[in-house]
């Protein structure tokens, strides 16, 4: 099942990238997609039943616009700090750790990427449930995990 899904995603990608629809190029695409599927079908769908991927799709669609808006806000903040003439007074870097209640690997990864992209924080490492986050200012450190974890949980965690 995962193999077939990987194969069709690869084939779609091939057709999009090549933009040629004659028999020669299409058969080349099928052969190379089969080879890639044989070698690395375990990578794309990481140890989960495939149904949950379809279920989490609408949640992601709701989450992404909010995330994009947060990223714009974060960039304006970084721009303010960078362009401020006495920058060193504004920043106060510190390293914090916190535990998350998210269960699925995909939601942990989403949370980590979102933390990296939004105000003044970078995820350094995830170990089991513990996130290590490097924050640019104290206020950014105190705001974690808060709002973002709740939204990721609502978008991707199964409601049980």
């Amino acid at each position: 099942m995962a193999k077939a899904a990987t194969f069709f995603i690869m084939l779609t990608f091939w057709i999009l990238m090549s933009g040629m629809f004659d028999a020669f190029h299409l058969s080349l695409g099928v052969v190379s997609c089969l080879l890639v599927t044989l070698f690395s079908h375990k990578l794309l769908f990481y140890g989960e039943p495939r149904r949950s991927w379809l279920k989490s799709f609408p949640g992601m669609m709701l989450y992404l616009p909010w995330l994009f808006w947060q990223i714009v806000v974060a960039n304006l903040q970084v721009a303010y700090i960078v362009l401020h003439p006495r920058m060193l007074d504004l920043i106060d870097p510190c390293l914090i750790r916190f535990n998350t209640c998210l269960k699925r690997p995909i939601s942990k990864v989403t949370l980590a990427q979102s933390i990296t992209l939004t105000p003044g924080t970078i995820t350094v490492n995830i170990h089991e449930n513990e996130f290590t986050v490097y924050a640019l200012t104290r206020s950014a450190a105190e705001a974690l995990p808060g709002e973002m974890e709740r939204r990721v949980g609502r978008a991707l965690e199964p409601t049980s």
């Binding site: 960039n75 920058m87 920043i91 640019l136």
Partner: peptide, 15 residues
């Protein structure tokens, strides 16, 4: 402009 490596990552990674 940032003083150390970790703060530089903030500028590079986000912007």
């Amino acid at each position: 402009r940032f003083p150390d490596f970790y703060t530089r990552l903030h500028a590079a990674g986000k912007c």
